[in-house]
Design a protein around this nucleic acid. Structure first.
Lengths: 149, 149
DNA sequence: TCAAAAGTTAACGTTGACGTTAACGTTAAA
DNA sequence: TTTAACGTTAACGTCAACGTTAACTTTTGA
C-alpha cells in the first residue's frame, strides 16, 4: 500500500499521534485522505512534511506559527506556476511575488543572524574545550604538593 | 553608581521586569544584592548575563532549562580556577573536568547539527529568491497575450 | 464472526514562560 | 515631609503545544 496509518507515521517520525493530529488541526500538516470509516491515510508527502517541520522546530527554534508561514510560502511557490492570463492577473501575481520576496528576505535576514550567533557560540565552546583540556594537563603535570622532587 | 534598578535593566535589555524577576526565580540569573529596603541592585555582570540568555533563547531556540545548563558550565569554568590541594581534590577535580568535557562535547555536536541545518535552510531560501525573481522577469518579458507583435 | 487492537472526536488537564493585578513598602524630588 | 513614582511579594490569568481520558467506531487477525 502507498498509505500509512497514524501509528505508522508516529513511529516513523518519532512524534506522538496527538501531535500529528494537532499539527493538522492548526493547519500545519495538510489533512490526509480518509478511509471509508474515517481513518486518516497518510502518504510519503506527509512524512516529508513532518520531517521539515521537526527540523525547523528543533534546529531553528521557530514556533509552529512561524514554521507555518515559511511552509506556506514554499508551497505557494510550488503550486504557483505559470497561471497568468490577463493584465489584472499579471498585476496581482506581481504583487504576490513581491510580497513573497519581502517575506523571504526577512527570513534570510533572520537565518543569517542566527548563523552569526551560532558561530560565536561554536567558538566559545571550542575555547571552553581548550580550557578544560589545559586543566586536565595541569593535573597530570602537577601531581601533588612536593611529590617526586 | 555602579548598580542599576530593575527598570534600568529592563530598558537596557528590552526585557520586562517580570521576566527579569522570573529568570532570577528559576535560577537563571544570579540574585543581585539588595538595598536596605530590599530593592534589587544589579551590576554590569547581570546585564551581560541577560544578553547571553537572550541570544541563546532567540537564536538557538533553547528552553530556559537548557540555557541554564550551558550557562552553569561556563560559570563553573570561570569560578573553578587552580584550587586543588591534595590527591583526593585532584581526583575530584579531574572527574569534574571530564564531566564538563562530556557536556561541552554534546553541546558542540548540537551546535554543529544546527549549523548544518541552518545552512540548508539558507540555501533553500536563496533558491526561493531566485525562483521569485525569475517569476518577476517572466512577467516583464511576457507582457500580455498577443501584445505588441 | 467476533473480540481485541487501533482509530476517531471532544473535552479537560498540564507545563513553561511569562502577563496582570492587588496590596503593600521604599525612594526621591518638590 | 510628603506624595508620586517606583519597588516588592504573592497569587491568579493566559497562551502555545501538546498529554490524557472518555466514549465511541472501525479494522483486523485468529
Amino acid at each position: 500500500m502507498d498509505t500509512f496509518k497514524i501509528d505508522d507515521v508516529a513511529k516513523a517520525s518519532g512524534l506522538t499521534k496527538r501531535t500529528i493530529r494537532y499539527w493538522e488541526e492548526i493547519g500545519l500538516l495538510m489533512a490526509p485522505e480518509r478511509s471509508e470509516g474515517g481513518m486518516r491515510l497518510y502518504t510519503r508527502q506527509h512524512l516529508e512534511r513532518l520531517q521539515q517541520i521537526m527540523k525547523a522546530r528543533d534546529v531553528l527554534g521557530y514556533t509552529l506559527q512561524e514554521i507555518q508561514e515559511f511552509v506556506a510560502i514554499r508551497e505557494e511557490l510550488l503550486n504557483h506556476r505559470q497561471t497568468y492570463l490577463n493584465v489584472e492577473d499579471q498585476e496581482q501575481k506581481k504583487q504576490e511575488l513581491l510580497e513573497m520576496k519581502r517575506i523571504v528576505s526577512q527570513q534570510i535576514e533572520m537565518v543569517d543572524q542566527k548563523l552569526e550567533t551560532l558561530n560565536e557560540f561554536r567558538k566559545e565552546l571550542d575555547h571552553m574545550t581548550t580550557r578544560i583540556e589545559n586543566g586536565l594537563v595541569q593535573l597530570q603535570t602537577t601531581p601533588r604538593e612536593g611529590d617526586s622532587n
